[in-house]
Design a protein around this nucleic acid. Structure first.
Length: 481
RNA sequence: CGGGGCGUAGCUCAGUUUGGUAGAGCGCUCGGUUUGGGUCCGAGAGGUCGUCGGUUCAAGUCCGGCCGCCCCGACCA
């Protein structure tokens, strides 16, 4: 490898190339043989598994159960909900042949499962006593995207999709909001990604939804990433698929449904929120390895002193529930390993050398503070507690840092000129009273769209920066991935 | 789907202008050396030059078709 290959391109120089290099070189994922497909490698999948677990326990705490649904859906299902088919038709993968025969009706590979869920729930629901239905699917879906990017937009992606059906509108409203809160809590407290929970504009709404709630995050280049969505589907799918039930008064009613999803795209959010010019920085709560131990020795007698100590410390940390990797690769120098694990974003590096064995110490280096500043020698006494405290500090620091970055790059603007400047580098926060037409116009001129109307509104009213009309809502605009 | 770039060793690329025996660095294997910030030295393995066809005594190199990838735009979780 040349020097050029060893060092990542800096984020400033070319954020896009930085992102691609990090994904590939940190061993998170690789390109599949079909355009736009992705191979998630073990390290990336381990990160996804941690995300899954953090979400799954939150879902279950709200009464949701997991299930499995077919990936093949009759084409006719898609056509039952007018807006839904309009939204998804252009990006469907369609199976026309099976077992060497041409199929009578083409089969669609699910782009999302609202339709097959609607069909199924219609069979499951007769009475108000059958409601609510609270189901989540961990699966992959296929959307034939024109322009793809690892994790952010691939032809096939892994996600969870939750689908609930309720007897009343109020219950569906509550569920839509509840799941957004789950996503927000997960993003902030597990991933240290300071998202803005809010509502999508009509233009950005999910195809077939009455309301789409979203968590929006700001990436390291100031662009927005929609990181999770929760849709209130009203009775649209219930009517399209006849999900009907008799209520307490023996009156036939349509059910109210919701759906909500978060995908492997979130891995992209983590990369682009926390990463630096050295590579990935993973939040301790989700990192596949929270601590990497790098043993340091020259001669065999040093090795026989250092390695047992390293293994003993590994066991102590693991016994305390800390995820630890002991890098005992013999053919690589410590310096190489330092760089390697920094690229891979492990939050804490623990070095043990001959001097440490003697002095009963170890060196701890934190990934969020490169260089001497983040490195300290500590006693092996109470090491578990020391490491746990450090991991907590790093987690908190990542969130604080990302929040500060987001706020520093979010600007209240009053006119269109200020707006254009703001969305070059971040978010514009504005009073908004425009319509779809105005939003479209702004998008064409600046590439910025309404990311959301934050749930946390200041109240009162102001003047729309674009139309000059009285406005009662604040919107966040930004350029999006 | 439009514009641009590119396809040569596992990776990054040179060689194509001017056709004439397939190259470098990194990685990999072996031996030694080194190890607290990307060690160094030596020996080796590894390629139907994306693919199909054409021109030619001769094609990585020239011509044509096809396939694929990356970047920018429109579309999108």
């Amino acid at each position: 490898m040349t020097d050029k290959d060893k060092k990542l391109v800096s984020r400033r120089e070319d954020f896009n190339e930085w992102y691609n290099s990090v994904v590939l070189r940190a061993d998170l994922a690789d390109y599949g043989p079909v355009r736009g497909t992705m191979i998630v490698k073990p390290y990336g999948w381990a990160l996804w598994e941690n995300i899954q677990q953090a979400l799954d326990r939150r879902f279950k705490a709200t009464g949701v159960q997991n299930a499995g649904f077919p990936m093949f859906i009759p084409m006719s299902f898609l056509q039952k909900e007018a807006k839904h088919v309009e939204g998804f038709a252009p990006e469907l993968a369609v199976v026309t042949h099976g077992g060497g025969q041409e199929l009578g009706e083409p089969i669609v590979v699910r782009p999302t499962s609202e339709t097959i869920i609607g069909h199924t729930y219609a069979n499951w629901v007769q009475s108000y006593r059958d409601l609510p239905i609270l189901i989540n699917l961990w699966n992959s879906v296929v959307r034939w995207e024109l322009r793809t990017k690892l994790f952010l937009r691939t032809l096939e992606f892994y996600w969870q999709e939750g689908h609930t059906a309720h007897a009343t509108q109020a219950e569906a409203d509550e569920r839509t909001r509840m799941m957004l809160d789950v996503y927000t809590d997960f993003a902030v407290n597990e991933a240290a990604v300071p998202v803005i929970p809010g509502e999508k504009s009509e233009m950005e709404r999910f195809a077939g939804a009455d309301q789409t709630l979203t968590i929006e995050a700001m990436m390291g280049d100031g662009k927005a990433l929609q990181s999770g969505t929760s849709h209130n589907l009203g009775q649209n799918f219930a009517r399209a698929f006849d999900i009907q039930f008799l209520d307490q008064n023996n009156v036939l009613q349509y059910a109210w449904t919701t759906s909500w999803g978060l995908s492997t795209r979130f891995i992209g959010a983590i990369i682009m929120t926390h990463g630096d010019d050295q590579g990935l920085i993973l939040p301790p709560r989700l990192a596949p390895y929270q601590v990497v131990i790098v043993p340091i020795y020259r001669k065999d007698e040093e090795k026989t002193a250092v390695l047992p100590t390293a293994m003993r410390i590994q066991n102590e940390l693991m016994a305390a529930g800390i995820r630890v990797k002991l890098d005992d690769r013999d053919n690589l120098t410590p310096g190489y390993k330092f760089n390697d694990w920094e690229l891979r974003g492990v939050p804490v590096r623990l070095e043990i050398g001959p001097r440490d064995v003697e002095k009963h110490s170890v060196a701890l280096a934190r990934r969020d503070m490169p260089g001497r500043e983040g490195k300290q020698f500590v006693s092996q006494e109470g090491l578990v507690a020391t490491v746990q405290t450090l991991l907590t500090e790093i987690q908190a620091n990542l969130l604080a840092r990302a929040t500060q970055f987001r706020d520093a790059n979010t600007h209240d603007v009053r006119d269109y000129e200020e707006f254009k400047t703001a969305v070059e580098t971040g978010f514009a926060r504005v009073w908004w009273a425009g319509d779809n037409q105005a939003e479209m116009q702004i998008k064409q001129e600046t590439k910025a769209t309404i990311r959301c109307f934050p749930l946390a509104q200041p109240g009162g009213s102001g003047v729309c920066f674009y139309t000059g009309k009285p406005a009662h809502r604040i919107a966040i605009f930004g350029r999006a991935y």
